[in-house]
């Protein structure tokens, strides 16, 4: 579904991604791991069209989408749940969900999907008229995931969904990711937390200094002391 080949991304004069290649097959959950500054968020923001690569291909559903702006990526089906949730804080939960469908025009479909989100996240259904900024971190995470799903993504990008959340909420996020996967959604999850990645993902790529340093199956990572110590600083 997604194939990234020899991706190079620069921030001004700094090369952040040197040469990154990996693939996300349809229907899989793939984890991208790495320490701080390894380039994980850069990859996800490039896939979302927030950053332009200097070189390399991003092939999605057979088309090269590298360098396209964010609205194209969303329409193509690549949608991001950003790190730190980034909800529209001054707007209601309901408005946040509706804005997730900003690129869609089918009113009836949007309305049905909003109801579906409330079925998936009954907890935020009770707070649909509340400002998203007044919710707890876990509730905001649900709003952020719901908002991304409203665009009907083919590939969901999740940037550190466990960061800043309590262990109970992290379990909830893991459950949600599994439930979405069971419905056939393809997911690329970026994590610093190896436990979360090992719990949900099937394949894993480990990033170090802007390049892929290791690839393997995700559940096995936790028993791989070499990977843990050399790449993830454990």
């Amino acid at each position: 579904m997604l194939e990234v080949r020899h991706l190079k991304v620069w921030y001004g004069v700094t090369e952040v991604l040197r040469d990154v290649s990996f693939e996300v097959p349809e229907g899989r959950i793939v984890a991208l791991l790495g320490g701080n500054g390894s380039g994980k968020t850069t990859i996800i923001n490039t896939l979302s069209g927030l950053l332009r690569p200097r070189a390399g291909d991003i092939v999605f559903d057979g088309a090269d989408v590298a360098g396209r702006p964010s609205d194209h990526m969303v329409k193509a089906g690549i949608v991001q749940v950003p790190q730190g949730r980034e909800v529209f804080a001054s707007m209601t939960v309901n408005e946040n969900l509706e804005l997730g469908a900003a690129t869609r025009r089918d009113r009836a479909g949007i309305r049905d999907d909003v109801d579906r989100m409330y079925e998936l996240f009954p907890h935020i259904a009770e707070r649909r008229g509340q400002r998203a900024g007044s919710l707890s971190g876990g509730e905001q995470q649900q709003v952020a995931i719901g908002r991304a799903l409203m665009a009907r993504p083919k590939l969901l990008l999740m940037d550190e969904p466990s960061v800043g959340l309590s262990p109970i909420i992290v379990d909830m996020v893991i459950e949600t990711v599994r439930a979405l996967h069971a419905r056939g959604l393809t997911i690329l999850i970026v994590e610093q937390n190896v436990g979360v990645a090992a719990a949900v993902a099937e394949d894993a790529f480990v990033l170090k200094d802007g390049a892929i340093a290791f690839k393997g199956d995700a559940p096995g990572l936790i028993d791989n002391p070499e990977v843990l110590s050399s790449y993830l600083g454990r």
Partner: peptide, 18 residues
Amino acid sequence: RFMQATADNPKAAKLVGL
């Protein structure tokens, strides 16, 4: 709505495809 959303959180506005 789109104006309000962009004023609220420009990054999120881009991520929903605005």
